[in-house]
Amino acid sequence: MSDSDAGERVPADCPGCNARTAHEVLKPGGHATVRCTECGHTHKIEIERPATTDVDVIVSQEGESYPTSLAANPEETVEVGDEFVVDTEAAIQQVRVTTVELGEERRVEEAQLGDVETVWTRVVDNVGVNVTVHPKDGRHDETRSLKVHVPGDFEFVVGDVERFGDDEFEIEGVQVRDEAEGYRREKFDHEGDMVFAKDVKRVYARDETTTAWSAW
């Protein structure tokens, strides 16, 4: 059992209504003071909380991985693509599930947290996005790669011209990550197509930098 929060609503048996109704928590504590939302009767109850389990979480960011843990209801389900917040040594970060591991390297798309050994994730609140930039004249042997760092909800739109530092390019296509949800296909190349940065596997663009092109 753990303390509740003031203003929270919990189900409880009401001696005024002689029925089980929703109650508003007035004073949190071991024996919380609550008020029935049906008849207004105020009384004390002990609020039961579901048991929790500590789940190992591996967080990946910019090629580095580090462990943390998450206290959760063992009956809750986790699946690839889910997003949640974890507290790591680096910061409080928003992550997305990339792999659910049950043990002995057995990986599944979803499972109850009580059965999970490790949840593998990657940071999605701030991300590094790989961009392949082709020169204006179409010489593919001088294609170059760069990485831009943006918030996870930054929008990459096909046809838009973006500038990052000394680099300026027009977006020609966007490839979507495997675990990203809500997209009709894996690659978008029609003008106006939009993909959020946290869902991007790679951006393909045409160089628009005003300085002379150089492979060096």
Results as ranks from 00 to 15, higher is better:
Thr121Ser: 00
Arg20Tyr: 07
Glu75Asn: 05
Arg49Thr: 14
Gly30Gln: 14
Ile171Ser: 00
His190Pro: 00
Cys36Ala: 10
Glu105Ala: 02
Tyr183Ala: 01
Asp3Pro: 00
Val116Trp: 00
Ala32Ser: 08
Ala212Met: 12
Asp137Thr: 13
Asp3Phe: 01
Ile92Lys: 11
Asp82Phe: 03
Glu155Trp: 05
Cys17Ala: 07
His41Trp: 14
Val161Tyr: 07
Ala91Arg: 13
Glu101Gln: 11
Asp5Asn: 11
Val116Ser: 00
Asp178His: 15
Val57Cys: 00
Thr21Ser: 10
Arg185Tyr: 06
Cys17Lys: 06
Gly103Trp: 03
Ile171Tyr: 01
Gly128Phe: 11
Pro15Ala: 13
Ala6Gln: 06
Arg206Tyr: 13
Ala197Ile: 10
Ala19Ser: 12
Phe164Ala: 07
Thr33Gly: 05
Val85Arg: 06
Phe84Asp: 02
Gly138Tyr: 08
Cys36Trp: 07
Asp56Arg: 05
Ser69Gln: 10
Glu170Trp: 13
Asp166Lys: 15
Asp82Gly: 05
Gly114His: 11
Asp193Leu: 12
Trp216Lys: 07
Pro50Asp: 06
Gly30Asp: 14
Phe188Thr: 04
Arg122Cys: 02
Glu38Gly: 08
Gln61Tyr: 10
Val78Leu: 12
Gly29Ser: 07
Gly165Arg: 08
Thr121Tyr: 00
Thr33Ser: 04
Cys39Gly: 03
Asp56Asn: 07
Ala180Gln: 11
Cys36Pro: 05
Cys14Leu: 03
Ala12Pro: 11
Glu64Ser: 15
Val176Glu: 04
Phe169Gly: 00
Gly7Gln: 06
Arg9Cys: 08
Ala212Asn: 09
Gly173Phe: 07
Val97Trp: 01
Arg107Ser: 01
Val108His: 06
Glu75Thr: 15
Ala91Ile: 02
Cys39Trp: 08
Asp3Gly: 03
Thr211Ser: 13
Asp189Ile: 05
His31Tyr: 13
Gly81Phe: 02
Thr209Met: 13
Pro151His: 10
Leu70Trp: 15
Lys136Asp: 04
Val148Ala: 02
Asn126Val: 09
Ala6Trp: 06
Thr33His: 09
Arg49Phe: 14
Glu186His: 08
Trp120Thr: 01
Glu168Arg: 15
Glu104Ile: 09
Val131Pro: 10
Asn73Met: 01
Glu75His: 07
Asp141Leu: 05
Glu24His: 07
Val86Ala: 10
Asp56Gln: 04
Phe164Val: 12
Glu76Ser: 04
Thr33Met: 04
Glu83Tyr: 01
Asp56Thr: 04
Gly192Glu: 07
Trp213Val: 15
Ala71Tyr: 13
Gly30Tyr: 13
Met194Pro: 05
Glu101Ala: 13
Ala12Cys: 06
Ala71Leu: 15
Arg185His: 12
Glu191Val: 11
Thr121Ile: 00
Val176Ala: 04
Lys44Ala: 14
Pro135Gly: 08
Thr209Phe: 11
Arg122Pro: 03
Glu48Ser: 05
Thr21Met: 09
Glu186Pro: 02
Gly165Trp: 11
Gly128Asn: 12
Asp207Lys: 11
Gly152Tyr: 01
Gly16Cys: 03
Glu104Leu: 04
Val95Gln: 00
Val55Gly: 03
Leu102Glu: 02
Asn126Gly: 05
Ile171Phe: 00
Val100Ala: 00
Glu79Tyr: 13
Thr99Glu: 08
Thr210Gly: 10
Gly114Ser: 13
Pro74Asn: 14
Phe196Val: 12
Leu146Ser: 01
Gly81Asn: 01
Pro11Trp: 02
